[in-house]
Design a protein around this nucleic acid. Structure first.
Lengths: 210, 210
DNA sequence: TACCGTTGTAAGCAGGTGCTTACACAAGGG
DNA sequence: CCCTTGTGTAAGCACCTGCTTACAACGGTA
């Protein structure tokens, strides 16, 4: 009763794995590793950690699921690599005072390219999972909050950073995961403006009018 | 490898189900129903919908798990009854302009009695679950957001209400579920004050200094 | 006492999960 | 050629899940 169970099952030999354009290799560990990593990244973002099964990940990669365990050892380790891979570029390449708006708009945009950073989305959809997952997610949260904390000169800057991050994730939660209207269909510019104005009193380091 | 698997298994006959003080009944459908409802309420709040198994719920109630299905039909129906039971009193008994602060403090308080309203916590921990669950949770969210929307006279009041609710849930997410520091240990009064000040520009109907 | 509906129990079913194992190819070197 | 090594595959294992079923024990009634 799942949406796409096994449609890749009966295939003669590795002839067309995914897209089929540039790849077309037949026995290449590096490439299959990346295929698995990409598929896992997508599925974790779409369904969260628990609901993305290793069978689905392997099927989307067009690869036997046993290879997933050969190359990554366990589902948790694969999750770790996914989170470590694309997670932190946005964090490093964005100046602190723009981070909130960039992250917010990243979550508000729907049609995103295959390389987009969906780490926050993965976090939101995986919250209910095991405690180890929650711990892994706390790591990413710490990095974001640390940067946001620098935007306040108050002595409780860290707490203010946490609160800003909480809002960011809460908005993503309601919009992307829950699909609450009218937030889910709201214009990103409007949301960004409303939130930015309200956050002004919390983080005085934010730009005035975004 | 779970925390408490079966410790109630080998018991002669229903002699001491839970607490043992007032109950002490032996064959009472109404009472076992409530035992199951209470246990489910606790476990859903602690672990979310998916991770709270019917076996664990029945074990905590000190009841055979088959009775769960006799009295409720399915796990989802039990979840529905739990959400419907204690969910909306807070919503109805609290004036709109105080709702945000009351709900926020309810989530910030840790030592809460057995009758406390943990509906929002249940929501947060169950987000990753099936789509039906997400839909059920959207219902509760709608009710909260609807009330919060009345606090703004702007034409996009509904969106502002959604944003306020998003912050509320985001804070609960980071504090209760993720355990992000320093937010997790922060003084509720401090949190309430910071958030209240920032929200002033979003919902002008909020009390000035809380 | 004999009966019978209600309540409680143990065992099991079908299906899904992460993960493992035994084996079929391909390619390269001796 | 055979043998080894790396890659891909199918089948299965052990366990957990929600849920069902066949049966035992209780308690009131006739």
């Amino acid at each position: 009763m799942r949406e796409a169970m096994q449609e890749v099952a009966a295939r003669p030999a590795g002839e067309a794995r995914r897209g089929g354009a540039a790849g077309e290799h037949r026995r290449d560990a590096q490439s299959t590793r990346r295929l698995l990593l990409d598929a896992a990244s997508e599925l974790f973002a779409e369904r969260g950690y628990e609901r993305a099964t290793v069978r689905d990940i392997a099927a989307r990669a067009g690869v036997n699921q046993a290879l997933l365990f050969r190359y990554f050892g366990s589902k948790k380790a694969l999750f770790g690599e996914v989170m470590a891979r694309g997670g932190h570029e946005q964090l490093r390449s964005t100046p602190a005072e723009r981070l909130f708006d960039v992250a917010l708009r990243g979550m508000l945009a729907e049609g995103r390219g295959p390389g987009a950073d969906r780490s926050l989305e993965v976090c939101l959809r995986s919250i209910g999972g095991s405690d180890e997952i929650a711990e892994a997610l706390r790591g990413l949260g710490d990095e974001y909050a640390e940067v946001l904390a620098t935007l306040s000169r108050a002595e409780d800057g860290a707490l203010r950073g946490d609160l800003a991050l909480s809002w960011l994730l809460g908005i993503g939660l309601m919009r992307v995961v829950v699909g609450k209207e009218p937030l889910a269909s709201a214009d990103p510019n409007t949301v960004s403006r409303l939130v930015g104005e309200a956050l002004g009193s919390l983080l005085e380091g934010l730009p005035k009018t975004e």
